[in-house]
Amino acid sequence: MKRLRWLRLLQITACALAISLNASAADLPKVRLFTTGGTIQSRALSRDKMMEYNDGPKVTPDELIADLPELKTIADLSTLEISNVGSGNIDSEKLLALAKGINEWLAKPEAAGAVVTHGTATLEETAYFLNLVVKSDKPVVVVGAMHPFSAISRDGPFNLYNGVRVAASKDARGKGVMVLLNDEIDAARDVTKNNTYRVDTFVSRDLGPIGFADSDRIVFYRNSLKRHTDKSEFDVSTLTALPKVDIVYGYQEADRAPIDALVAAGAKGIVLDDSAMSFAAAVKDNQAKGAVFVQSDRKGSGRVVLSEKSAERGVVTADNLNAQKSRVLLRLALTKTSDPKEIQRMFNEY
């Protein structure tokens, strides 16, 4: 009898505890969800449709949150919609709005972190851009999905849930901008989309992930030694546009015409993804017109090494950044300088 009473008391206490947990949203870490769109916010009319899923209405930020009441137990979440478009439509204007929005949010003392939803195709570019311009050591996590919101076994909800967990985690501070899909936490600088449709698409080919969002805990194994976020020299607070930089692919018998055309169209910088015989003369001619050239490599792994020959030609080597990330860094570099030597320093440090 006495035992039963004890049990009853325990029950009441447990209930009270549960209610107080629910009521204590104010004590939970404050995370803001910045939405830009992408597969994670896309619907198809049938649940087995895993491609060309733009026939249903887009998923709004409120729907994302309503779909995941579990988020209420791990963070005090607010939302800010930047756009609701596929990642192919993310442009400088949206990038700058996103970066400024995140900086404004993280500058608030009560803000714990930020999560960004993004289409996966150019997700790595936005993530690296943020890695270079976010002025805070608080966690910023970019998430996406490979299967639409409407699909069987959709990966989006768990990615979003884990993204919020990482953004709310103290251990995630100072790691730079992170990309989270499929339980893996990758550094924005090193991650790339590696596969067109499968869920394990994001990999850091050279260096691997820095941690994992496992069920028992968020766990980190690596710190990045490259400059990022609060240690970055780049500042977008007064920028309203970014310099035009494009990419030219190298292959057997590649023509120099795209290089000449891009510079004529106003490109201030060009990333050469691999080389071709015709490029050397085009580089020389267009450097005379003020264009800056960066040499990356299409193999997708390994470094373009520093060489005296490249330095003499005034061509900046991209280290192990891929072409699309080299473009992001070169654009920001060109907001500061057009001196290839100084830009090479930046490519060595970021």
Binding site: D190, G208, S224
Partner: peptide, 24 residues
């Protein structure tokens, strides 16, 4: 290979270069 978390740097022809440090 670092199966789960990869290499932290490379001894390349131009220089020895590090990208990561372990947190454990």
């Amino acid at each position: 290979k670092g199966v789960d978390v990869g290499a932290i740097g490379f001894a390349d022809p131009d220089r020895v270069v590090f990208y990561r440090e372990p947190t454990r």
